[in-house]
Amino acid sequence: MTTQPKFAQIKQHIIAQIRSGAWQEDQQVPSENALSAQFRVSRMTARRALSELTDAGILTRSQGLGTFVARFKSQSSLLEIRNIADEVKERGGHYTCVVLSLESIAAIAPIAIALGVEVDSQVYRSVLVHHENEQPLQVEERFVNPQLAPDYLQQDFTGITPHEYLIQIAPLTEARHTVEAIMPGPDICQWLNMFHEEPCLQLIRRTWSQGGIVSFARLISPGSKYRLGGHLTFKK
C-alpha cells in the first residue's frame, strides 16, 4: 500500500475538521509552524498543503493575520453571473463555440474538494473556447458533479453553453468566485490565438443549487479583450 504524502495528509486533516464542523467559516486554522510540528514535517510541506487548499477556495489567507476557513456559501458577489453567449449577442456580435474536451475523469484532491466529492471519484470535465465574430474570447474549463448533472456529457455545447444547460437542470442558488490576473501557459496562448504573452483575466467560480455544489469552473480571457463590470444595489 502506497504511503500518502505528508502534505496530502495535512490537507485531509484540515478538510475533515471543516466537514465535521469542528472548524467553522472564518475560523483561523493552525499556522505553518503549528502544522509542521504536529505532523513532523518541514514548513515548506505545511505551506504546500495550505497553499493548495487556498487555491481550491477551501481556505483564505490574509497577509499578517493568518489562514482562515473560507466562507463557502455566504459570500456575496460583485459580479453578475451572465451567459457569455448572451453578452456577445447583446454587443451585436456573432457567438460560436469550439469544444476541446468533454470527458469523465477521476477527481484529484483540489477538484474533489471544490465539488464536495470523494477523491478519485468520477466527475465530468469540459474545455471550451468561446468565440466572438470568429475570434477566441474566453477559455472555459469546467468540472461538474455528475450526481447533479448526470447527462452533462451528452450535451451539444456548440448549441447551448454549459452555463445555460446547468441553470436549466440545477437552478443556481449561490455562487463564489475569485478574480486575478495571470500569465497564460502555452495551451491557453494557443487556444486564444495569442501570438505574444499578455496578462489574462482568470475567474474561478463555484456554483451551488439546492442539491449541493454543481460545478467548479476556470474562465480565462485575454486582458486586452475582456473586462468585468458590475452593478451594486445597497439596502437602506
Rank of each mutant, 00 (worst) to 15 (best):
P171F: 10
Q168N: 14
I160M: 02
R61A: 12
L148E: 05
Q190V: 00
A114K: 11
R82S: 03
L137K: 12
R40E: 01
F143M: 08
V98Y: 13
F143H: 08
A175K: 01
Q63C: 07
L35T: 10
E118L: 12
S76M: 09
V29Y: 00
E164V: 08
E80K: 01
R47T: 02
H130C: 06
A109T: 07
L203R: 13
G92S: 12
P136Q: 11
F157R: 10
M1C: 01
E132C: 11
K236T: 12
A46V: 02
S74R: 04
Q168P: 09
E25L: 10
F72S: 03
R43N: 13
P150N: 06
D187A: 00
F195P: 12
D120L: 04
L65N: 07
N193F: 05
V117K: 14
Q12V: 04
Q135C: 07
W191R: 03
W23V: 00
K89W: 03
T60R: 15
W191C: 04
T158S: 14
R142P: 01
F195D: 09
I81A: 13
V129R: 01
G66V: 09
E32Q: 15
D187M: 01
V88N: 10
V117P: 14
S76T: 09
Q24S: 14
E103W: 00
D26P: 08
K225M: 02
G57S: 15
R206P: 01
E164Q: 11
A107T: 12
P162I: 03
S215H: 05
A37N: 08
E32W: 11
Q147L: 06
T60Y: 14
V139L: 12
H131G: 15
L203Q: 09
V41W: 00
E87T: 09
F7R: 13
A85P: 06
